[in-house]
Amino acid sequence: MNRSLFVPQRMEIVKVTDEVATHDIFTFELAPLGGGIAPYLPGQFAELSVFGAGEAPFGYASSPHETGTVRFTVKRMGALTRELHRLGPGAVVGMRGPLGNPFPLDRFEGRDLIVVGGGYAFTTLRSLIATLLTDKHRKRAGRITLFYGVRHPGLFLYKGELDRWRTAKELSLHLTVDAADETWKGPVKLVPDLVRDTAPATENAVAVVCGPPAMIRFTLPVLETLGVGEENILISMERKMKCGVGMCGRCNLGPRFVCKDGPVFTLKELRELTDDY
């Protein structure tokens, strides 16, 4: 994409899935119009364009083995996402990606993995887990413990997939909600408390944390208390971005950029870079 750094690839929306009870989070499945899908890995992101409304970054929700299309899960937040939510199958949007660096899958080999997600940011963790459960990776990974919390049961993303993961032998799934309804049989507690109470083994573990700032802030000390070192805690950062390639200047954490040097950083790195994570 050399000559056309800022000219997006045209992508046709082939499917829109309404994910949650509040109907404000949709998953868009996109197929390229001309050209293929540039290779990507979980943790990377792309800039999606709605022509006339602009461009914004979203982590890939799909996994590289799911060929032919890519998926992004988008919450209606601002002007661009509102416009995107109005579009249905057949509409053409733009995509620039992949941008940023993926989760360090090599580092996960032979290690147990503690994955902690909250709210809508779970989308990039879905890509990670789906990738790790493929034949290529699962033999090499250790045990995966997944914590995922939302405000109430209607807000879980990818419900069908969560049901399948419940029975996957490589993965133990721990879901929680802030407030239950009559359908909910699981724990009602905040994500950091769930992690603390579950106390997964940490001797050989790497942790990945992705979620709203408050969840991250309270989960980090729990993980450290359980024994995960700051160099083994990975956090996927979010910042406002425009260019995605380290030029526009806004997403820096100290001297590094979330877009080109991240978005995944270790807690150790973050502590050296910024007060705000």
């Binding site: 800022f6 022509f51 006339g52 461009e55 425009k242 260019c243 526009c248 806004r250």
Partner: peptide, 24 residues
């Protein structure tokens, strides 16, 4: 100083994507 932003000027039918100077 070379920080910038990007925006669309126009409507859904047609227009331009432009970048412009932005400031920290």
């Amino acid at each position: 100083c070379s920080c910038f932003s990007i925006t669309d000027t126009g409507n859904r039918r047609g227009g331009r994507r432009v970048r412009y100077w932005d400031a920290c």
